[in-house]
């Protein structure tokens, strides 16, 4: 049985339907990301799980209990906000102990739990400081400790890394994931950053216009996108229109090159999705090939990004930098190899 179930969830603000028929089943201890652009409804879903918004329709159950209409303070859910939201008038220790204090836990128990949590987030000496005396990263770790201290059933993270510097962001994201694994707490993480979602999650829900387009592992989401939106939103994707010449063998023509994909296609036109890193320079035996002219070349260090003109379409290609090969130049006409299995068929 799943631990957290969201079924047929709907939310409208006036005539505006923000969340439409949203379904999700989360296992105990699972780390789920809600990924999508701003305004896709991911935060609204999270706020309904937390209890800040009441669903227009649908149910949310946690551990078999329907919580859809429960007030937030009766749900036993931990939440971390984008802007830290630490209580500025309380010390770090008082912030972390807040949840236990409002439940009337004895002072000794609170102190012990606070010390435990501060050790967990690696700030054992900071208990007497006030939030304004901490850096952003430290504040967010305290916010995490505060959310976890009352031992919530579910942890909700609402873009907790967005307000931080790039460097802190990466280290904190590893830290959050480590703590989550250590405690085995069921977690829903809202983000618009695909890299965060891909690197942290057990499963990702890609949301688009209030609907869950695809639910799957990071590997699935990236390599087998279910919709054109998912394919385009996660990672960089070249979309190429291709004429189907032989539907049975998957023979298509793209910008003057012929590809045989080796799988059945519908007739007429299809859209092919090609990740830039799936293409390699030069022809290879057994691989499909495309030819085109280089129009732009960006040297990015580990990667060289090319833009090619395929005749009627354009294509971006990422090559790994090597010291051996001489880099191509703008204006060169080149041949690119790709494994037909890597080409995504997104439909017409």
């Amino acid at each position: 049985m799943t631990f957290l179930t969201i079924s047929r969830l709907e939310k409208s603000f006036g005539a505006n339907r923000v969340v439409k028929d949203f379904n999700l089943e989360v296992e105990k201890g699972e780390f789920i990301s809600l990924l999508g652009p701003s305004g896709c409804g991911k935060t609204t879903v999270l706020r309904m799980v937390a209890g800040f918004e009441l669903p227009s329709a649908g149910r949310i159950t946690i551990a078999g209990k329907d919580v859809s209409r429960l007030r937030p303070n009766h749900r036993n859910i931990g939440m971390v906000f984008q802007a830290y939201a630490l209580f500025p008038n309380l010390t770090v220790a008082q912030n972390v102990g807040f949840g236990l204090k409002v439940k009337g836990a004895p002072a000794r128990e609170i102190a012990a739990r606070v010390a435990e949590m501060l050790a967990l987030i690696g700030l054992p000496e900071m208990g007497e400081r006030y939030p304004y005396q901490l850096s952003g990263g430290q504040q967010q770790r305290v916010a995490l400790a505060r959310a976890l201290a009352p031992k919530p059933q579910v942890l909700l993270l609402d873009e907790p890394l967005s307000a931080l510097d790039a460097k802190v962001r990466v280290s904190l994201r590893n830290e959050i994931r480590a703590i989550q694994r250590e405690l085995g707490i069921t977690t829903i993480f809202v983000t618009h950053d695909q890299e965060e979602a891909l690197s942290m999650s057990d499963r990702i829900v890609v949301m688009h216009q209030g609907v869950a387009d695809q639910v799957g592992t990071p590997f699935d989401i990236y390599n087998r996108p279910a919709t054109r939106f998912v394919a385009g939103f996660v990672g960089t994707l070249n979309t190429l229109t291709a004429q189907v010449i032989d539907p049975a063998s998957g023979h298509v023509r793209v910008g003057g090159s012929d590809l045989v994909l080796g799988r059945a296609l519908p007739g007429g036109e299809v859209v092919l999705g090609l990740r830039p890193e799936m293409l390699r320079l030069g022809a290879e035996p057994g691989m499909a090939s495309l030819t085109g002219t280089i129009t732009e070349l960006d040297f990015l260090g580990s990667v060289i990004r090319l833009r090619l003109d395929l005749g009627d379409q354009r294509l971006a290609v990422d090559l790994f930098n090597t010291t051996r090969a001489t880099p191509p130049r703008v204006g060169d006409s080149v041949t690119l190899a790709l494994d037909p299995a890597d080409a995504l068929v997104i439909g017409a």
Binding site: A50, G78, M79, A83, F87, G99, K101, V102, P150
Partner: peptide
């Protein structure tokens, strides 16, 4: 008064009165 303070407090189990007494009024 930030909305998140109130939400954080209620997530942590605080009633409205507790939020006012421990957070909003001191601020």
């Amino acid at each position: 008064l930030k909305r998140e303070w109130r939400e954080a407090a209620s997530c942590l189990g605080a009633t409205g009165a507790q939020y006012w007494r421990m957070v909003a009024l001191p601020i």
